[in-house]
Structures are given as structure tokens and as C-alpha cells.
Amino acid sequence: MSIKTAQESGLALCPKCHKLNDMEEGADIHTTMQCTRCHGMFYPRKPHSLQYTLAWNIAALLAFIPANIYPIMIIYSVGIGDPNTILSGIGEFVDHGLYPIAAIIFTASIIVPLLKIVGLFLLVYRVHTGVRLRPDKHSKFYHALEFLGPWSMLDVFVVALLVAVVELGFVTSVSAGPAINYFTLTVIFTMIAANSFDPRLLWDKDQSNENAKEKNDC
């Protein structure tokens, strides 16, 4: 059974208010349209979606390198500084036997950003080439990536809290390290990358493949 899409019927969906609009005669899927309900400007498909996703993704990957090299947090006790990177912070939890917390931080600050970057690269590649594209699986995967995005901010919030709470003058204090800037950038970049990917492209490709197949069969 083939499902008709809005695009094939000459309709376009406003991404903000979910109103279907008639596409004008001869309008391309990348022409700007104005929604009749909310009067916002939109495109039937995000233009250059793959390129934008790829670009933000590369930026995120580049920012992720210094984020792991530089210390994210410096703990001063009696005037002596002890720099902590993301990984050494996790190692400390493991040393203290706090495995669940170590697992949460490891997931939020290492696995999720990497998974998002690699996953988006994969999605862009699959959509671009159309090889082994499974829209049902891939769109679920995309939604998981989108949902996980903000949770990577966990480490930044932890550092922010520690900096504010542990402020006991000379005895102990905590300061943030340069890696926190890069790490935040990684998170923001992956979120923008995920936002600029248009999941409908997954289905468009599939639809056109199907149509081509039907034509060949005839």
C-alpha cells in the first residue's frame, strides 16, 4: 500500500502551526511560503538540510576534541589546583565505587555526543546516497537522537553548581576549566545539527524509489 504524501498532493505543512497550505502553481519545495493561519514564512522542506546538518556536525566534532583534552574543572584545596578532565572526573566516580553515577555521566557526556555526531553523519550519508535506507528504523533513530540532545548539558550544569556551592575560600574552591566552553559548544552544535535535519527527507527518498520501482514493473 502506498501512502500519499502532502507534497505529492500539492500541499505543504507549516512546521509551526501544523496547517496545510496549498502550494502555488510551479512552486518548488524550497520556495518560501507564507502560512495562511499563522502568517509565518516557511519552506515545504528545509532547504539545504543535509549540508547544514553536515556543517554543524563537523563543527561539533571539532569542538569535541578540545573538550576532552583540556580540564573541565579545577579543584583547589589549600591553594593547590587539581585539574579534572571529563574522563578523569568519571574515573574518580569509578574509584569511589559509585558506578551508577559514573555510568550516567559517561553516557551523558561521552556516549550521547558521539552517538549524535556519528548517527547524524550516518543519516546524512544514507539520505544522500539512498543506500539501504530504512525510513521506519531511521526516523525512530533520529527521534532518539533529538530527544537525547539536551541531556549532554548535564556536565556543564554539574560544574556550574560545584563552582557556586564549593566556595570556601582558601580551604576548598572549584573553578571551571576551558573545556567547559568547548563542551557546551559541542552540545549546542549537535542540537542545531539535529534541528536542521529534515526527517521527511528519509521518506521522500523512499517514496521516489518506490515510484521508480512501480514504473519499472510496468
Partner: peptide, 8 residues
């Protein structure tokens, strides 16, 4: 239309 896959 579906916001995610454009089905009507």
C-alpha cells in the same frame, strides 16, 4: 499531514 514523514 504528518509532521515527521509528510503522509497525508
Amino acid at each position: 499531514a504528518c509532521l515527521q514523514c509528510d503522509a497525508l
